[in-house]
Amino acid sequence: MADQLYLSLWFPNFRLEALPEKLTSVMRQFALISGEKRVAAASVYPIGFNEAPTYQRIYVNDDRSQDTEDSIIENAVAEAIEQLHDDMAYEFEMRWKLWVPENDTPPSAAPDPDIDQDDDYDSLIHLDTLWKLQPATVRILGLGPNFDDASFEQNGHIRIDFGLDTPWLAETLDEEELDEDATKHIQQNVEKLLAFTLSVEKHCGISSRLLWTESGEPLAQKLIERLQRLN
């Protein structure tokens, strides 16, 4: 079953005034790995995760964005955190591309009138699994010390939400679809995730980090088990 994947970061002697700098530093590392240097959206949440945002902006990052510098990391962070409060959370959406499988049914798979329709025709259709690079949203969230009853103790001063862990486990694929091509693309997704994690550890001055899933199941163990089935 798909699971939500997070990376939590803690900083030594953390002060609220340092939050914009720390967010910018983490987002720069993400930009280096993803190749995407612009923010897709920014939101500010008061008090707790269930509250409506007090600030929200969605950026248009296409040819028109060349005329504005608003979505550049430093500028987006400065605008969203113009007023820094200890009971607010500041969220920034960025995107990277991950390999995802897409089942492609060939045109020749249309029903053959010479085949007995009482047979299980689906078993006669061969589905080729195509892999494509698709954009995926990553949410980078900076937590004020009093936001959500000081949830930073569990969630981190900064929490990165990668979305569902599907790109790293490909759990939608059946065993027979876990071929050499699947192995290569899953490993490429894993390498990108690890590259970002290690880059943050090396360049952002963190004191500790935790890669975790919402269910509490360790991603590393799930990856090992999945890749063992690929080999």
Rank of each mutant, 00 (worst) to 15 (best):
G205K: 06
S34N: 10
L32A: 15
Q154Y: 10
I115N: 13
G144L: 03
H185Q: 08
V77P: 08
L5V: 01
Q66L: 15
D148Y: 04
H126A: 11
N146V: 04
E153A: 14
A170K: 00
E217C: 03
A89T: 03
F162K: 01
L164V: 02
L141V: 12
Q66H: 12
L16T: 11
T213S: 11
S151Q: 10
Y90R: 04
G144A: 08
D120F: 13
H85E: 15
D86P: 07
T172Y: 00
V190Q: 02
A89M: 08
F92M: 07
I33L: 09
P218H: 02
Y90I: 08
T24W: 01
S71F: 07
A109E: 08
D70M: 07
E21T: 13
L84F: 10
T197P: 00
R64H: 05
F196T: 01
D112K: 13
P101D: 04
R95P: 00
V39N: 03
K192Q: 14
G144D: 05
I160P: 01
E51K: 13
G156Q: 05
I115D: 14
I81W: 06
M27L: 15
E82R: 15
N189S: 07
K97I: 01
P53S: 12
F49S: 11
M27K: 09
T137Y: 00
M88V: 02
T24D: 10
W99I: 02
L223I: 10
L169D: 01
S108V: 14
L193C: 05
L211T: 01
D70S: 12
A220R: 09
H85S: 11
I58M: 06
Y59R: 06
P53L: 13
V200L: 02
V200I: 13
E171L: 02
I125R: 10
E93V: 07
P101G: 05
Y121W: 14
Y55I: 06
S8M: 05
D179L: 04
T137M: 02
L178K: 06
S34Y: 07
D119N: 15
L193A: 05
K97G: 03
D112F: 06
L98M: 08
L143W: 04
Q187S: 08
R15E: 15
K22A: 12
V44C: 13
G216T: 05
L198Q: 14
L227Y: 06
E175Y: 02
D181R: 10
R209I: 03
L19H: 07
R95S: 09
R64I: 10
L5A: 00
L143T: 06
T105I: 15
A136W: 02
E175K: 10
I186F: 05
P101F: 06
L5W: 01
W96Q: 03
Q4T: 06
E17H: 09
Y45W: 14
D86L: 06
Y45L: 14
A52W: 09
Q117P: 15
A136M: 04
L127H: 10
T54Y: 07
E176D: 11
L194G: 00
Y55E: 11
E17S: 14
H185M: 08
D179Q: 04
R95Q: 12
I81T: 15
G163W: 00
Q187L: 07
S199E: 11
A76Q: 11
E51P: 02
S151C: 15
L210R: 13
R209P: 00
A150N: 11
Q56M: 15
